[in-house]
Design a protein around this nucleic acid. Structure first.
Lengths: 111, 111
DNA sequence: ATTCTATATTGCAATATTACGATAAAGATT
DNA sequence: AATCTTTATCGTAATATTGCAATATAGAAT
């Protein structure tokens, strides 16, 4: 049914999965990498950078904005986007502290 | 249309977005955290641990297995799952090297 | 051999995502 | 003011995801 039973999961689990979901599309990864490469805010270059239509890109930007991975500010008649370091750090911290805490099984264990 | 134009993105962009997509659901985050907590392989406890039906959980496990985040091996009449460190490291590396390379804008810049 | 237990698969319904053409909105330029 | 440029929104179609009941599968236990 597509009903997401997010009530049964912790706040943190819902939050991190939302962030990961936002990273779960190559176009959005490409957008983020483009912003990274520029080492600064990017004003009005994103549409010409991606092999997608302007409405589609606008939609992807919106999704990244919704989870605070990027922020945008109006600059003249174009919009400047930049990465939100705070959110990126949240992702980094989760991966660092949680995921990388995985331990190798001892020899003789099942995996 | 849901047509994913993955041909236009790099191999790495497609790969990392697939991994992130697999992390983009609270149930799958919960599964991973459960495996982490156990510090070992887990045989036959996952279904009772989550507020979802057995088929649904099986499906989520399959998705995690498809992208090699977990691996499972048959052990008697139950199945033991464990995390695949290699893939977790791939995620960690990407986040570390790529995402955390983001730089703060200098004062006076647009964001 | 039959039954039990654990997991996978199938089939299907509800919802979400992805994509884009058409159009709107808003500031810049002429 | 009319036009251009850039971005957002609307409407809609195609596809994917999520969830579960029913059922299948496979090894264990009786």
């Amino acid at each position: 049914m597509g009903i997401s039973k997010s009530d049964f999961f912790t706040e943190e689990q819902n939050e991190i999965s939302n962030l990961m979901k936002a990273l779960g599309h190559p176009a959005r990864i490409a957008i983020i990498e483009f912003l990274l490469k520029k080492e600064s805010c990017v004003c009005g270059d994103i549409v010409s950078e991606l092999p997608l239509s302007q409405p589609t890109i606008s939609q992807h930007l919106k999704e990244l904005k919704n989870v605070n991975i990027i922020k945008g500010s109006v600059e003249g008649n174009s919009i400047c986007y930049c990465l939100n370091l705070e959110t990126l750090e949240k992702i980094q911290n989760y991966v660092q502290l949680t995921i990388s805490g995985a331990t190798k099984c001892k020899p003789g264990e099942c995996c």
